[in-house]
Design a protein around this nucleic acid. Structure first.
Lengths: 233, 233
DNA sequence: CGGAAACAAAAAGTCAGACTTATTCGTCAC
DNA sequence: GTGACGAATAAGTCTGACTTTTTGTTTCCG
């Protein structure tokens, strides 16, 4: 899924990308294309293509007579889905999860408010379906099914907002929710309050109550933030 | 500024990127690398590197025996600064500006709230300095100076939030504000109410009043949205 | 001794050509 | 109609030679 084995340069990136985002190369340190090509046992052209991609993500900068310089974290395109995945797979995953959850807490309530005014009848139906699915899987260690509906729910909200910038955060939210379920401790059933809130959001959107949808979604996200505070202090 | 003639492949991208994001190639249409290389009068290796970058932006997908397929808009990495710049330079700039302004309206208030609790003394000083600069340039057609301080103000807020995802939106906000001043009609002096709000935000942050900073910033962003509604209906 | 200009080296950048591989499409047999 | 085989096609890969830019050094005057 995350791995794009569709080419040699992709395989190189699967190793080099995580290494850089994990901080294995200090910012400012210099790599040479030829050397990298030898290390990875690929031709220079393949390595050059990989470097170009890293460059477009602003993970590195390539300069003549100098080499490929690793850029500091503040330069990275942290919204690039690939970069997000690499960083989430790395060591400072907790910090990553927090950043992204804060972003969620800013974006999702506004998205829900917009969704309440713009959602189509079909989207409203999907929303309630997802919420009911969450209810159905909220008891008895059925976390996989719960997660599936949770992800779908937030994706519909973001899409129904009608704002493409919001819509494209669907993958990010999916990654965050999946990460929370998989990696972090989540032995018990999901918080019943959260489940109820999702149902209420679906109702508010259907009722075209933007303010309420926004308020309820804000409750969901602050709950997610609080949960993160408890689990990873 | 936006164009970095940092190589032949960069020059190719400066033409091909805007063309694709402008919709000159219908989604699903297929390009051939060799043909493109001939059209642009570059070698295949250079064109391949350009295609790789476009691929990492999810503007195109390259498949064997098929060619380079242009992807539909919903697949694009719309958070890639390069893509944002290309789209803002294109025909549907107004729609773009709206999407980004809505994003601002979601993010900036939350960022301001965080900044109120985390801003350093130095950042507080910068903030008031920027706000005062805005006041100083708010009369007498001194839009350039006003814009400069406005951009700096929002950049400090986003940085001071301590959230890297927010911080990286500084460039986007700069682009939006610059676009508004340059392109759209803005003959008169800036809205006095907005100027006052900026000063008040700076005060709220200094006073560590998160709720007030968030509320005031929300007023700024809804003002920006309203302004956009008036100018581009 | 210091600074400017010439020089040399290093690494990315570019190009051309040959070869490989996966995918698709057409054909033919069953 | 379906399945298998085969040819065509375009991306993918590799190699080697060459160019260009930048940097660091050296040399040569003032």
């Amino acid at each position: 899924m995350s791995t794009q084995g569709r080419g040699l340069h992709g395989r190189v990136l699967d190793t080099l990308g995580p290494a850089i985002t994990a901080g294995e190369y200090a910012p400012g340190s210099v790599l040479r294309t030829d050397e990298l090509a030898q290390d990875f046992e690929v031709s220079r052209s393949v390595m050059r293509e990989a470097v170009r991609v890293l460059e477009s993500m602003r993970l590195v900068a390539s300069r003549r007579r100098v080499g490929v310089t690793v850029l500091p974290e503040c330069e990275w395109n942290v919204y690039d889905p690939q970069v997000i995945r690499w960083r989430l797979a790395g060591a400072d995953r907790p910090r990553q999860l927090r950043s992204l959850t804060v972003l969620r807490s800013a974006v999702e309530p506004v998205a829900a408010g917009l969704a309440a005014t713009r959602a189509t009848a079909e989207q409203c139906a999907e929303l309630t379906e997802c919420a009911l699915g969450m209810v159905a899987h909220s008891r008895g260690r059925r976390l996989e099914g719960y997660l599936l509906h949770d992800v779908a729910f937030h994706r519909v909200i973001l899409t129904a907002s009608g704002n493409e910038m919001f819509a494209r955060l669907g993958d990010v939210v999916a990654e965050v929710l999946t990460g929370r379920t998989e990696h972090d401790v989540m032995f018990d059933d999901p918080d019943p309050a959260a489940v109820t809130l999702h149902v209420q959001v679906a109702e508010a959107v259907r009722a075209r109550d933007a303010a309420e949808a926004e308020r309820l979604t804000r409750e969901i996200t602050v709950g997610a933030l609080r949960e993160l505070d408890v689990l990873a202090p």
